[in-house]
């Protein structure tokens, strides 16, 4: 067992976990934050993407112990409240960016990370760039078109730089 301490969605979180606990298992099963999904178990689908110290990472491909001391943001941490969604969440809602919704938390966490990186670098987030950036996120419903549209819309309403 290893004692871990981290900040999740702005709140201190601490637990004794077995050493082989994945970050996603800690988030879902210990903290009961079930917005972060496990889709593939082979590190390919991106449904488990969270932000660790401000960078998108696959929480199924990382030990909880390796996130010791980190600032973690899950999809539950994006919106200020249920009535005040993050611009990227609103964009997915308004552009029909989801069908079954299983991949959506990972899509939104990947999207907010990519927009932040492009805005900070002063680079234009083109449609091609969005499609390239989504290589690590799989959606089996939408065919991606509305996800790309949602990210374009959400990006236009996000100011991170």
């Amino acid at each position: 067992m290893t004692k871990i301490t981290m900040t999740v969605n702005g709140k201190a979180a601490s637990a004794d976990v077995s050493d082989n606990t994945l970050l996603v298992e800690y988030i879902r099963e210990h903290l009961r934050l079930t917005g972060t999904h496990v889709g593939c178990d082979t590190s390919q689908c991106g449904a488990c993407v969270v932000h660790v110290n401000g960078q998108a990472m696959k929480s199924c491909t990382m030990l909880a112990a390796a996130a010791e001391g980190a600032e973690v943001t899950t999809v539950e941490g994006l919106a200020a409240s249920k009535d005040d969604l993050h611009p990227m969440q609103l964009a997915f809602k308004e552009n029909h960016g989801l069908q079954c919704g299983f991949c959506t938390p990972g899509m939104i966490m990947t999207a907010t990370d990519m927009v932040k990186r492009y805005q900070e670098a002063g680079k234009e987030l083109t449609e091609d760039a969005i499609r390239h950036e989504l290589e690590g996120n799989i959606c089996r419903c939408t065919g991606y078109h509305n996800i790309v549209k949602s990210i374009q819309d959400g990006a236009s309403k996000m100011t991170t730089a």
Binding site: G46, A56, M57, M62, E135, G136, N137
Partner: peptide
């Protein structure tokens, strides 16, 4: 290499 989340780690 890989995808953005993989490259971050």
């Amino acid at each position: 290499i890989g995808d953005p989340a993989v490259r971050h780690r």
